[in-house]
């Protein structure tokens, strides 16, 4: 059992707080993605779990062992690095065998594991090569094989696909997901790419400024963002946010339209809706179209509602002209409300 428990972990670099008191439990065999913009602390958290960085305070548990005082080698983890870190002076075979030899496994066991993980990652034909003779994608495969060969309780991955080109990234994404699903390990995966996060994760932890803002399943994160930040970070394009004035009795004035919302004494709330959750050509809200971005399956309209930018996604068959005024109707059950003071969802 390799459940990971992060208790109150904080990290300071000098006076800057890289991590504010993080608490998180990652279940046995779960695939958790730490997602956030650069500098949000996701890599620092991963490195603290790996033992490459020491936390200023807090505890890290893997299974029933407290590991925050231990060296990386004693934590039962394996890691895949962003730049792959394939040892340039060793062959692919020796790279994969490196950790196994350190663990003093028998030569036949080393051989067996290297062959197994190499075939799993489809690099059997590369075993005799050196890193310099490999493409980026192949190095990536070596790095993953090397981690898998350790048969670790936990695999940590730090932006493993970010150095690959788009097509290769898509291919590796699917492959990694299936390989890891069969490997019985718990996986923590750091990325800034939300598509990667959405498509691979059992659970996504969104990080911002050293804190976990929301940790939920991909769909839940997308549909019910717990905070303004999540709505504005997830989704491409992100959610639309409009200021809503309290009209009393749970009615809120958005633009010049009254919309039913939560009961609250607050004078102002934030109204939020995703660009695709809008019916066009009906309703009493109006927006002015400023720019068209045809994307094939659909067209993205950059509009304005008063002075506020507002995006709408329409079917690409629909004829829209720049400068046109559109009537729109946000789908009621997809509307979300945020408290402007706490930035949290209501």
């Amino acid at each position: 059992m390799a459940e990971i428990n992060i208790k109150n972990v904080a990290k300071q670099f000098g006076k800057t707080h890289a991590l504010h008191s993080i608490d998180m439990t990652i279940k046995h065999q779960e695939f958790v993605v730490l997602l956030g913009a650069s500098g949000c602390g996701k890599t620092t958290l991963l490195r603290i779990i790996a033992g490459l960085e020491t936390a200023t305070s807090g505890e890290v548990w893997i299974g029933d062992k407290r590991v925050d005082g231990l060296a990386p080698k004693d934590r039962g983890i394996a890691m895949v690095f962003q730049n792959y870190a394939v040892f340039p002076h060793l062959t692919v075979y020796e790279n994969i065998a490196f950790g196994l030899r350190m663990a003093k496994l028998s030569e036949s066991e080393v051989e067996r594991r290297v062959q197994r993980t190499a075939s799993l990652m489809h690099i059997e034909q590369l075993l005799k090569r050196y890193s310099g003779q490999l493409s980026g994608g192949q190095r990536q495969r070596v790095a993953v094989s090397r981690a898998l060969a350790m048969e670790p309780d936990v695999i940590l991955m730090d932006e493993p696909l970010s150095n690959l080109d788009a097509l290769l990234r898509m291919e590796m994404r699917a492959e990694l997901k299936s390989v890891l699903a069969e490997s019985n390990t718990t996986t923590i995966y750091v990325t800034h790419d939300q598509v990667e996060a959405m498509s691979m994760a059992d659970r996504i932890a969104i990080m911002d400024q050293g804190q976990i803002v929301q940790a939920d399943s991909p769909v839940e994160i997308y549909r019910n963002p717990a905070a303004h930040f999540v709505g504005s970070f997830i989704g491409n394009p992100p959610m639309n946010f409009l200021s809503a004035n309290n009209a009393g009795n749970g009615q809120w004035l958005v633009g010049n339209t009254t919309i039913a919302g939560p009961q609250s004494d607050k004078p102002i709330l934030e109204f939020a809706i995703r660009p695709e959750d809008i019916r066009v050509g009906e309703g009493s809200m109006t927006v002015e179209v400023r720019l068209l971005e045809p994307l094939g399956s659909h067209t993205l309209l950059a509009c304005r509602l008063g002075d506020t930018p507002f995006r709408v996604i329409v079917d690409s068959d629909r004829a829209v002209k720049v400068g046109e005024t559109l009537a729109i109707d946000p789908i009621a059950e997809r509307i979300r409300w945020f408290d402007p003071d706490t930035q949290l969802a209501l």
Partner: peptide, 24 residues
């Protein structure tokens, strides 16, 4: 990262230096 990779693969600092950094 080469050194860090060696640490996660079971080396202590000295071993990582000897097996990875020194040859390079």
């Amino acid at each position: 990262e080469l050194e860090e990779a060696a640490w996660t693969l079971g080396c202590n600092r000295l071993q990582a230096f000897r097996k990875v950094i020194l040859p390079l």
